[in-house]
Design a protein around this nucleic acid. Structure first.
Lengths: 117, 117
DNA sequence: GTTCTTGTTCGCAAAGATACGAACATATTT
DNA sequence: AAATATGTTCGTATCTTTGCGAACAAGAAC
């Protein structure tokens, strides 16, 4: 940021955040996390959107690297991409750790009630 | 999700993620977290974008509830909105906790190398 | 070899995001 | 009062996102 450019991590985190910036895609990620394995159909029947739109959201998550899709006969099996999800997770954790609330709080310094100390 | 609708948390998390889905806005949040207090000018001179664009990104973060802005004489002071940032943080932590890697791992169940167990 | 099932891709429309310079509003200095 | 400094808003252009139905491709079943 000192050279007026974004760091790799900032770009990467923003990319992941963007991919998660839609409730349908959040729902997809949560469903995949809970199921571990999942075909398109199961996923689609849980979402209030058309097939085409669902497929599109899956493509976006795939482009961002968060999930993987694999054709299996007539169906397509989707799952979380563990390697990239790990990076995403770490980037978010690192980002969250920069929140003032996570610092050792001086008396009266931070008015938040988030349980930090 | 069972009634084919998104939960409040999914909508909320997606809203925050969307707001963070741009490297400029990530950089702004990190800068605000590090500085605690910050005027527009300091912020702008660290970013590779025009004043107008910078102001626009600040508006988006403000609309999402992540930051607050306050005119102070000639300048505008920005800071993180602690209450909403707390919600954002908790939502992300909860979401991240649903990652398969965070579960107690059975032998050979999860191929990830993210340090979970 | 049709027909059915399952998902993807296409084509389209509406809305939103990103970026910029110019113009503006407002507070401070001169 | 005029000039300066600091940000915001306006107008514009371009691109992306979101959504849908219809058409399509490919494997499975009959």
């Amino acid at each position: 940021m000192s050279e007026k450019e974004y760091t790799y991590k900032q770009e990467r985190l923003a990319r992941y955040a963007k991919a998660l910036g839609n409730p349908a895609r959040i729902a997809i990620m949560e469903f995949l996390a809970a199921q571990d394995e999942c075909f398109f159909g199961q996923l689609h029947e849980k979402l209030p959107i058309a097939k085409a739109t669902c497929s599109q959201h899956l493509s976006e998550l795939k482009d961002a690297g968060l999930i993987k899709g694999e054709i299996e006969g007539l169906r397509t099996r989707y799952c979380i991409d563990q390697d990239n999800w790990r990076e995403c997770k770490l980037l978010f954790e690192e980002f969250i750790a920069k929140c003032p609330c996570n610092r050792k709080r001086q008396p009266d310094e931070c008015g938040c009630k988030c349980g930090c100390e």
